[in-house]
Amino acid sequence: MRDLIFSGELLPGAFVDEVAIAQQLEISRTPLREALKVLAAEGLVRHEQRRGCFVNQVTEQDLDEIFPVIALLEGRCAFEAARNATEADIAALETLHERLNKHARAGRITSYYEANFAIHEAIITLANNRWLAQVIADLRKILKLARLQQLHAPGRLQQSLSEHMAVFAALKARDPEGAEAAMKTHLTRQREALRELARSGRSKLA
């Protein structure tokens, strides 16, 4: 079900046809309903009395509320990562940032997103705090539901790269406060880029 939602086969606001989906997945409606309960708890779907289940839609207000929280959480991850990272960890991060830089120079946005995700995951792993990781993962599911494409904002690709390099520089210098501040700036500017896209009428919010 998550795959159907994240792939766009079930769009935000779409009615979840339990009969059709149970047939498609070749399962009974009982496990499907259990799955929908889990997805409702994650915020991906909602149940409306007498109407059924619908895929949730992420609003601009949702984004305004989520981004400051995830900035705080990922900022803390960067703080902990700067304290925990070994020389081998820094070397691995450097390789990821070289890949990020290469994709940015070539303008390969999809590949850049993949490298970007790998870097964020690596920093979260280095923080070694399962509670932070769990809450961030939950919030990311909601952001993924929004199908955001903030790198389409003019100049955002190079700006994002610069922000990542600032985070990496602080991690390499073992500067927890600097890494935390740089990561918070990175996430805050993502929201600003999305807001700019919305104002220009070119928002990729599905």
Rank of each mutant, 00 (worst) to 15 (best):
A115S: 05
Q190W: 09
K204W: 09
D175V: 07
N128V: 00
A14H: 05
N101W: 05
E26D: 07
E48L: 13
A78T: 02
A71I: 10
G201Q: 06
R140P: 14
L4D: 01
G201W: 10
E26A: 10
L132Y: 05
E121V: 11
A146G: 06
V45P: 03
F54Q: 05
R189L: 11
L145M: 02
M165G: 00
A146H: 05
C77I: 09
R105V: 15
L139T: 01
F168E: 04
E18H: 09
N56A: 12
K204S: 13
T59H: 15
I124L: 13
V167Y: 04
Q190C: 13
M183D: 01
G107K: 06
E94K: 04
L72W: 08
F6Q: 08
L205V: 09
L197K: 11
V69L: 13
E74D: 15
A137E: 13
E121Q: 15
A169K: 07
A166N: 04
E74H: 12
P31N: 00
A122D: 06
L25F: 14
G43T: 01
E18F: 12
V38L: 12
E48I: 11
A81I: 07
F117Q: 03
H103L: 15
R99L: 13
R76I: 03
L4N: 01
P12R: 01
A92G: 10
S7P: 09
Q134K: 13
V38M: 12
T86E: 04
E18P: 08
F6T: 02
E87K: 08
T125F: 12
Q158A: 15
K184Y: 07
T125A: 14
R51V: 06
A146N: 03
K144E: 07
E42P: 04
S7T: 13
N101P: 01
L11W: 10
N84A: 14
Q149G: 14
L205Q: 06
E65R: 09
P12H: 01
D89F: 00
V19Y: 06
V69C: 15
L100M: 05
L171G: 00
R202D: 06
Q150E: 10
G52F: 02
A169F: 03
H47L: 07
R147Q: 12
Q134L: 11
A82C: 10
R147E: 02
D62K: 06
L148N: 02
W131D: 04
E98H: 13
I123F: 15
E87N: 09
F79A: 01
E48Q: 15
E74Q: 15
A181H: 11
Q159G: 14
F67P: 11
A170Y: 11
K204L: 07
L171F: 03
